[in-house]
Design a protein around this nucleic acid. Structure first.
Lengths: 211, 211
DNA sequence: AATAACGTTGACCTAATAGGTCAATATAGA
DNA sequence: TCTATATTGACCTATTAGGTCAACGTTATT
């Protein structure tokens, strides 16, 4: 019996998981190429198919691995007793940036959930999605302290706008990280621009006494 | 000599242009399939290759057609003497929604500009991109009236946040439009939710006297 | 009605790529 | 040196790619 993917030494395991996550997220299950995944992971396709028995198994392994990882390293570490939305978002960013160092495509994880052409994969996905609770976005905006918002603002619309800004900011960070080929990223600078950005959002949405 | 694409009657011409724009925008030049384009346009691939001589020609025809269309039906109609950013954005939305009725993928046009694996296509694209002036986003935020913004706000950051919100709102509209299979869309409702959204943005960013 | 011209397509071509297998090699440990 | 494991190039079949072409159906002209 050959070694399976999850028993490999972490370096190789992560290389494969990252390459697969990238390919599956970018192209979807059907159009993703196992050739490309193997090449990006730096091993031969033949070897990769010793670690997993087929494309579908690889896909579901990737899905499960990152589901658990996000659960353990993100959701469980989030402090939802913090009621200030911007502090919550800051927490969220710090956790995700930490993960980003090891898993550069983890932000794209949610793209794995789109429907595929494979009946079996769809069935397996459905089962897993049902298990999940509130979506990430919903949870992060749940039960926040709205008393800090300026009077007259529509809270739901504000949440929406904050979410959209957040998506935009996230994409900007991701672009920066991916375009800088050096693996030595200036995380301090990223975090300081993050804080500048939250300061501005506070000025925009909060009463001056709540900033 | 066979009829060329641009000489066809507009219904068929648009069917092909729209199908091609969708496929090229979604998958990029290299991965786009002429089989799928023809099928989506409702004609045989053989017929399509009577209208264009090859994939590359089709791509560049699509690129040029929508460049000119956007120029004529969008940029030339925009009134940049309007200095209120939200009125400008509203104008922009109205024009684009109008175009959306006939060209459901026109919002994805900018995705045609990404680099391909074809040297010739890249060369042709470079030439065309150089001709273009300021990007759409830059132009729309250029020379706006910043006196209406509340004191203490960082204008550049605000522009950024407004842009991101705008992208989010656009995507929401596009989802709505594409998910509603009926071709009879409730544009009045879309426009009224648009106005609600701009009202909220005014409350957020403007002094109360400027709303 | 016959013919010419045009519009349209299914079947086909070759090349590339897909997922997946396997015999053979390279490497390491005993 | 032998054995066991790690690794891969070459290969299999099926599908899809871009593109061609002979043949068919439909109009229009004589």
């Amino acid at each position: 019996m050959p070694k399976k993917l999850l028993d490999l030494d972490p370096l190789r395991r992560n290389a494969i998981l990252n390459a697969a996550l990238k390919e599956f997220a970018l192209k979807g299950f059907d159009k993703a190429s196992t050739n490309i995944i193997a090449k990006e992971a730096g091993i031969s396709k033949a070897l990769m198919f010793h670690y997993v028995s087929n494309k579908q198994e690889l896909f579901l392994l990737v899905y499960d691995y990152f589901t658990e990882l996000l659960n353990k390293e993100y959701f469980m570490k989030m402090d939802f007793t913090e009621k200030d939305i911007f502090d919550r978002l800051r927490q969220s960013y710090l956790l995700q940036i930490e993960l980003l160092k090891q898993y550069p495509w983890i932000f794209e994880f949610n793209k794995l959930s789109i429907v595929t052409n494979s009946y079996e994969v769809n069935k397996a996905l459905e089962k897993r999605v049902n298990k999940k609770q509130l979506s990430c976005d919903e949870q992060i905006f749940d039960m926040i302290d709205v008393s800090k918002f300026r009077a007259g603002l529509n809270i739901d619309k504000c949440k929406q706008i904050i979410l959209w800004s957040n998506i935009g900011f996230t994409n900007q960070i991701l672009d920066e990280i991916r375009n800088s080929k050096t693996s030595n990223l200036d995380y301090k600078q990223i975090i300081s621009s993050l804080d500048e950005y939250f300061d501005e959002l506070r000025k925009i949405f909060y009463t001056s006494s709540s900033e």
